[in-house]
């Protein structure tokens, strides 16, 4: 922990020193456009707007930042837009892992390589949730119930052939069960449908279900992560995020399922520009508002750039591709 903090301080220092050099190399000469690949109010939208608010509040850029929502076609609109803006470093694209997964399942005039990866700034966890009055107290009993009635248990999620759907397919494989996946428009909708008892479970991110958990409408069973989540404020009855077992502990051997919050530039931009934004985003992470955003949304504060980010993308894409191919969703 101490090491990590020291490291963070060091990177901050380097970033602070480095910024003057980077500025000399490339800096925005006109307003910067943040292209959000989700609709207003979605997770990616909040991510981008938080970054924008921090940049504006702390005057990290001389140029104004404008946020534009291009969430049509599950974000495809924004990616295609980014592709056509090749060589234009004043447009920054905010996304998740849909940048590399979406082109696998939908016929698009867009390939993941068409954008230049900049960084991933946080990873969002996925949990298995049941309604507050569900008889299942742990993941094991839920899985057994699902086993007993193949195809009868309904799991809700956001969108089709997207992160939630892929996760549900992985759960089916890992636990040897068969369920019915019901795609809703958003995680928020999936949360209310679960609280109303219309589906038996969902795989929402922490922030999407927090309100309903507090009110007793839904309950988490386990988290799809290698280790338990960070301890924050207790949420209900003294229980907090860290009290939720991992799904592996609970008998569902799935431990690497996370959604990164990613930042891209259009293709064909000079390396200087990429470096500039990496530095800028590093500065953003140092601000208290960022920490506050991470805590509030119960995400993990991780930062990947350069090689690390490339590796992350590679691994995540391979995993996703395996499921997508097995389900026959692959389009090209």
């Amino acid at each position: 922990m101490m090491m990590k903090k020291a490291l963070m301080a060091a990177t901050a220092l380097v970033a602070a020193l480095g910024i003057s050099a980077a500025e000399a190399a490339w800096k925005p000469s006109k307003p910067v456009e943040f292209v959000v690949t989700s609709g207003a109010g979605g997770g990616t939208d909040q991510f981008a707007r938080t970054v924008q608010a921090i940049i504006t509040k702390h005057n990290l850029l001389d140029q104004p930042v404008v946020v534009v929502n291009k969430g049509g076609g599950s974000g495809a609109e924004g990616f295609v837009y980014g592709k056509t803006a090749a060589g234009e470093p004043h447009k920054v694209i905010f996304a998740t892992n849909n940048e590399w997964l979406l082109p696998l399942v939908a016929k698009l005039a867009f390939k993941p390589e068409d954008l230049t990866p900049v960084a991933a700034m946080a990873v969002d966890e996925f949990l298995l949730w049941v309604p507050g009055d569900s008889p299942h107290q742990d993941a094991k009993s839920f899985i057994e119930a699902a086993k007993a009635a193949p195809g009868k248990v309904k799991i809700g999620g956001s969108q089709s052939k997207d992160t939630d759907h892929i996760l549900v397919k992985q759960i089916e494989k890992a636990a040897g069960i068969k369920v019915t996946y019901v795609p809703f428009k958003s995680g928020g909708e999936a949360a209310t449908q679960l609280a109303g008892g219309h589906v038996e479970a969902n795989t929402n991110n922490p922030a999407e279900n927090l309100g309903q958990w507090k009110a007793g409408g839904v309950r988490p069973l386990c988290v799809f992560a290698p280790e338990r989540m960070a301890r924050g404020e207790p949420v209900v009855d003294g229980k907090g995020w860290a009290d939720i077992p991992t799904c592996k502990e609970a008998g569902v051997p799935l431990e690497h399922y996370q959604m990164p919050r990613t930042v891209f530039l259009p293709g064909g931009v000079q390396q200087d520009a990429v470096d500039f934004y990496v530095d800028l985003l590093k500065q953003v992470r140092e601000k208290p508002e960022w920490q506050e955003y991470i805590t509030r949304t119960s995400q993990s504060n991780r930062f990947f750039a350069g090689e690390d980010f490339q590796t992350f993308i590679k691994n995540n894409e391979d995993e996703g591709r395996a499921v997508i191919a097995a389900e026959g969703w692959l389009v090209n």
């Binding site: 000469s29 006109k30 307003p31 456009e33 104004p64 404008v66 946020v67 534009v68």
Partner: peptide, 17 residues
């Protein structure tokens, strides 16, 4: 409102956008 409208060559020439 920070809603960018479509810009053309003239704005680029003037360096507005």
């Amino acid at each position: 409102f920070q809603v960018p409208l479509l810009k053309g060559p003239l704005e680029a020439l003037l360096g507005i956008y």
